[in-house]
Every structure is written in structure tokens, then in C-alpha cells.
Simulated assay, not measured.
Amino acid sequence: MNNEEKILEMLSKMQGDIAGIKETLEEVDQRSIRTQVLLEADISDKIQLLFDGHSTIIEMMDRLAPKERVEVLEDEIITLKTAVKMISNRLAALEKAQ
């Protein structure tokens, strides 16, 4: 086998390899397109639904108990707890005295 025949054989092998590479690239391209469609259609819709739900929850929380009202109630609870502790301590002292 002379050099020209060897070169031709190598070229034909390379052409076969290139065809295989092209096939693989086409498969990857098709998968990429399917992935892109999935991301655009399915995932973005789900993210939008999550965002809408989050916004609705925040709106409901603001309507149910505004932050200022919660702070006032917390202060009142602290006052009530302090008063109950004082009354309990006095009651305990009175029971000891009897």
C-alpha cells in the first residue's frame, strides 16, 4: 500500500468520524430545543404561579393583621404577662401567710 492509498484510507475514516460527530451534534441540538421548550412553557409558568401565590399570601397577611397592630398587641401581651406574674406572686405570698 503506497502513501496515496494510506492517505485516502485515512480520509475515508475521517469522513465517517465527521458524519458520526454531525449526528451526535444534531441529537444534542434536538435535546437542547426540547429543554428550551420545557423551560419556557412549564418552568416559567410554575415560577409565575409561585410568585402569584406569594403575593397573595403577603396581601392576606397585611389585611389580617397589619404590622403596627401586631406590635401593639405584643406590647399589651407583655403588660398582661407582667400583671399576671405580679398577681401570682401576691397570691402565693398570701397563701404562705395563712
Results as ranks from 00 to 15, higher is better:
65 A>P: 06
38 L>S: 09
79 T>E: 15
80 L>K: 15
20 G>T: 05
71 E>N: 02
87 I>H: 07
32 S>R: 12
71 E>I: 15
52 D>S: 04
87 I>T: 08
14 M>F: 03
51 F>Q: 14
55 S>N: 13
57 I>Q: 09
15 Q>V: 04
43 I>R: 13
3 N>C: 04
26 E>H: 03
24 T>I: 04
50 L>G: 05
83 A>P: 09
84 V>R: 09
77 I>K: 13
55 S>F: 02
34 R>L: 09
11 L>H: 03
31 R>E: 10
20 G>S: 13
96 K>G: 14
3 N>G: 08
10 M>P: 00
48 Q>C: 02
13 K>T: 01
57 I>L: 07
23 E>P: 01
46 K>A: 06
65 A>W: 10
73 L>D: 12
81 K>H: 12
66 P>I: 00
34 R>E: 13
24 T>W: 14
53 G>V: 06
53 G>K: 02
58 I>D: 10
44 S>C: 06
18 I>H: 08
25 L>C: 08
88 S>V: 08
44 S>D: 06
76 E>P: 02
17 D>I: 00
96 K>L: 13
19 A>T: 03
52 D>R: 06
92 A>I: 00
50 L>H: 01
86 M>F: 13
79 T>L: 13
22 K>T: 11
12 S>I: 03
52 D>Q: 03
56 T>R: 05
58 I>Y: 12
92 A>Y: 02
48 Q>W: 03
72 V>D: 03
30 Q>I: 05
58 I>P: 07
21 I>K: 08
33 I>R: 15
95 E>N: 04
11 L>A: 06
22 K>P: 00
56 T>E: 09
74 E>V: 11
74 E>C: 10
61 M>L: 09
72 V>I: 00
54 H>K: 14
45 D>M: 06
75 D>W: 01
36 Q>E: 08
8 L>K: 11
12 S>F: 02
25 L>F: 08
5 E>M: 11
67 K>W: 07
26 E>F: 02
69 R>N: 01
84 V>L: 14
87 I>Y: 11
97 A>M: 09
3 N>W: 04
2 N>D: 11
7 I>V: 11
63 R>G: 09
71 E>S: 10
85 K>Y: 07
89 N>G: 14
1 M>V: 11
88 S>T: 15
40 E>L: 12
8 L>I: 06
77 I>G: 07
33 I>Y: 12
23 E>Q: 11
69 R>T: 12
40 E>R: 13
27 E>W: 00
5 E>S: 13
73 L>I: 12
8 L>D: 07
15 Q>K: 13
72 V>A: 02
30 Q>E: 15
63 R>F: 08
58 I>C: 10
34 R>A: 11
38 L>F: 14
28 V>M: 02
92 A>C: 03
65 A>Y: 14
68 E>G: 14
81 K>E: 14
55 S>G: 08
23 E>S: 10
48 Q>D: 13
2 N>I: 00
90 R>D: 15
53 G>H: 12
47 I>E: 03
57 I>Y: 04
61 M>P: 00
6 K>T: 04
43 I>Y: 14
64 L>F: 15
20 G>K: 12
95 E>S: 08
42 D>F: 01
85 K>C: 02
53 G>M: 07
20 G>P: 00
